[in-house]
Computed example of a mutant assay.
Amino acid sequence: MTTTYDLIDEAVIAAPPATVWDALIAEFRGAKKWWVPANTFATRTGSPDAVGGEVEVTVHTKGVDKGGLKLRFTARTTAVDPGRRLDIEYVDGSFRGPASFILQPLPDGRTRLAMHFAARPHGPLTLLAKVADLGAEHSRAALAAFAALDRQLSTEVPA
C-alpha cells in the first residue's frame, strides 16, 4: 500500500497578502531567505508564478550543508491566482501529486498562509515512508518556514 499524505499546515503572517506572495515567489526562485535550512528551491524552467513553470525542490533532512539525505523533486505550476493561490504538481523525483499555497487576507492586514500537501512518496522514498513519519516531518518543516517568514516580514521596514 502506498502512503499518500493529505496535510494542511497554516500560519498567520504579519504582512498583507501581496507581500507574502512576493516572498513566496522569491523563495521559489532561489532566495533562500526563510525556508532554509530545511528546503531550498531553484527555478528549472519558466517562472514559479506562471503555469508550466518548474521549480527544483531539495529537502535537506539535516539542514543545508549538514550532510544527510537530500530529497529532490520537481514542482510544476498548474494554476495561479496572484496574491491568493498557487497550485503545483510534483512531477518528478521523490514525490508525486498536488500541493497548493493559499493566501487569505485577514481584517487586521495580516495573511493566513496555508499549504495543502496531498502528495505521495515515489521511488526509494516509498520504503522510508513505511518506517518514518514523513508527514510529521513535512509539517514540522513547513511550520518552521512559515514562522521564519513571519519573523522576516514583521521586521522588514516598509519602503
Rank of each mutant, 00 (worst) to 15 (best):
A142P: 00
E137S: 15
L106P: 07
A119L: 02
P37L: 04
R112F: 04
A119I: 02
P158E: 06
P82T: 03
A132Q: 10
T61R: 12
A23Y: 00
R96C: 12
T43K: 04
E137K: 14
L128R: 05
V51D: 05
E54S: 15
L134E: 08
A23Q: 04
R29K: 14
Q104V: 15
R84P: 02
A26R: 11
F101R: 10
K32E: 10
V36C: 06
P107C: 00
D87G: 05
A75I: 06
D22Q: 13
A147I: 06
T74A: 08
V91W: 01
G53H: 09
D87Q: 07
W35I: 06
R85Q: 06
P107S: 07
P98W: 08
A129T: 11
D9V: 14
F146M: 14
K70A: 13
A38T: 05
I102T: 15
A50P: 02
L103T: 06
H116V: 13
A136N: 10
A11D: 08
K66E: 11
D9I: 13
T155A: 14
D81H: 04
K62H: 09
D9Q: 12
L134R: 11
R140M: 08
A159Q: 10
A38N: 07
E89T: 11
P98L: 10
L125E: 06
A136R: 12
V80L: 00
A50D: 11
M1D: 14
M1Y: 08
A144I: 01
I25L: 12
L69H: 00
K130W: 02
R96D: 13
A23T: 08
